[in-house]
Nucleic acid binder design. Structure first.
Lengths: 226, 226
DNA sequence: AGATAGTATCGTACATAGTACGAATGTGCG
DNA sequence: CGCACATTCGTACTATGTACGATACTATCT
């Protein structure tokens, strides 16, 4: 006698594409993107590897799916309010999300077809800029500039060993010794006087650059309202 | 009778760590990072897989190695000349290099120990900023800002299907149809009036953002020279 | 010359990955 | 009941990184 899934009280909720993707996202977060294998995913879902292929065509599709899940996590920028504040808030939200899922940054490079969440996000953000008075051209330039900054910052943050405040010293300190040869005076200087200062956190640099960019962009606005 | 490598005229130059890494770089460029496997690399070198392990500990080390090779390709910024021009030139060189090896961007995220070429590059660039009159703090902020922009831009460029001027239309055009529903008016607008204009090239946006950043940074300089 | 110790290369084999194929099971409807 | 479908999964094939140890070549010392 074999028991069906519904007659077995210990059985899991039925599989679904969403459950597969959500579980894949959690797995990538918990154990790293390298640990996200079809087999480990199946195990986490309480099924067997080949069962997943009823919901996704292949692993690529899973990766595309979780990247779009990440974008869903970004707050949609509010369509009202002062543009600078809204853009600052949006930028922080994107960065926070990317930092929460560092593996997603490396994936962006290889995945070119944007999902729905991604498109909606772009649409909303462009709206902010256009309504703030940026021309089509300026808005395009501004958007490219801002997002380049966000992605690049997140990328550097992800490349850091651990961006928590303390751990950076563990990496920088041994370097300082190596620099004692005098080969890298400027790196030494910046390590000693900036990075190794107590309370230093690379993530804090984000706002500095962002504000500089937003301020500079302000000059591009040609107020079109009557 | 077995012939030694030197007695066999058809045999290859002897293996070496450098040859392994250089060939790995070429392979990644030609066939994509996914095609870079130990076996394919060995074949390209005219040897057998296990021979490579005499020169590298594992594949990770190969990846670290070719990332540093990429950094060696970046021009070291000249230590004299107006800082803006030098920084602009350096930024362009970094971007061009990353664009030439798009796979390297995705690798940056996972590889945290910088190689020698990388360190030398940072040292030289920091020197430019410090000698231009940036304080230690400002130089740190400025460097983080500029590099975030470069990496982020390169990342977006790599995520584009093909950043050549023509091919972008192939991707944007089908989107336009989909947008005909009116769901994405701003995306439609920017596609129609900007991206799909003949001669558009995403790469051209790089200079616009870069110049804006450099101009804004100029205000941070506190001229320390007497 | 012959023995020996390194240096460099590779053959075999194993664990783990993605996934093709098709069989097994369950479900609803005539 | 029988039949079409949806869903799950067992088996097996191919590709990958690499552990282990055998092999061959080179240089050095007796």
């Amino acid at each position: 006698m074999t028991l069906g899934p519904s007659s077995n009280p210990g059985s899991r909720t039925p599989l679904s594409r969403d459950r597969v993707l959500q579980c894949a996202l959690d797995l990538a977060d918990d154990a790293g993107i390298a640990a996200l294998t079809i087999r480990s995913l199946a195990q986490a879902l309480g099924t067997k590897p080949m069962s997943l292929y009823y919901y996704v065509a292949n692993k690529e599709e899973i990766l595309d799916g979780i990247v779009d899940l990440v974008f869903e996590e970004v707050e949609l920028p509010s369509s009202s309010g002062p543009w600078r504040q809204v853009m600052h808030h949006r930028a922080s939200s994107v960065r926070r999300t990317l930092t929460r899922h560092p593996w997603s940054i490396g994936l962006l490079e290889s995945r070119s077809t944007p999902g729905l969440a991604t498109l909606r996000h772009h649409e909303a953000t462009l709206g902010i800029l256009r309504r703030a008075g940026f021309s089509v051209q300026s808005a395009a330039h501004a958007y490219s500039l801002i997002d380049s900054y966000i992605y690049g910052f997140a990328l550097q943050e992800a490349a850091l060993p651990l961006s928590g405040s303390g751990q950076i010293a563990d990496v920088a300190a041994p370097m300082v010794e190596r620099f004692a040869t005098g080969e890298f005076p400027y790196l030494l200087e910046i390590a000693a006087e900036h990075v190794l200062k107590p309370g230093y956190n690379f993530g804090d640099e984000f706002d500095v650059g962002l504000e500089l960019i937003l301020t500079a962009l302000e000059a591009w606005i040609t107020d079109v309202r009557p």
